[in-house]
């Protein structure tokens, strides 16, 4: 189809400052190599991602607990066509794993050939600092 006549809209750049004050120990924990979850002191529910408020009993009194990292992969995909802000990355594998403690985590899965990745296999969840300095976590091989 021939290009249709159009006007360019005014350009804006959007970067939001996302508050993390209520989950700061989580982000600090990643720097120390730990993946932390929160547990409600009132009803005992364990949360990952960590939360400051309990959606089950509405209490806001949580304690921080370190996760074992022992995970079973429940599903995965290999992302080839990437969004704008991930264009610089090589295609990546995203997985959802269930941890021994019962909570699930969605994260990248690294250190495996794609053909080796199977539903039901074991992996380890570890904290990570990316080369760009971003705080994150990923599933990787059991060592």
């Amino acid at each position: 189809m021939a290009a249709m006549p159009s006007l360019k809209s005014r350009e804006i750049k959007i970067v939001q400052d996302i508050p993390i004050s209520k989950t700061l120990p989580f982000w600090e924990g990643l720097k120390q190599g730990k993946v932390l979850a929160t547990k409600c002191k009132k009803c005992g529910k364990l949360y990952f991602p960590p939360v400051a408020d309990c959606s089950q009993c509405l209490a806001s009194d949580m304690e921080w607990v370190e996760l074992s990292g022992e995970a079973t992969i429940e599903t995965f995909t290999h992302v080839v066509v990437r969004p704008t802000t991930f264009q610089h990355e090589k295609p990546y594998t995203v997985a959802i794993g269930r941890l021994k403690e019962g909570v699930r985590v969605l994260a990248w899965l690294t250190g495996f050939k794609l053909s080796e990745v199977k539903v039901g296999m074991k992996a380890k969840l570890v904290a990570k600092i990316t080369p760009e300095g971003n705080l994150t976590y990923e599933f990787t091989r059991l060592e």
Binding site: E89, Y92, V94, L106, A107, W108, T136
Partner: peptide
Amino acid sequence: NFGVTFPA
């Protein structure tokens, strides 16, 4: 952190 796309 994970760039999960809609198809993903």
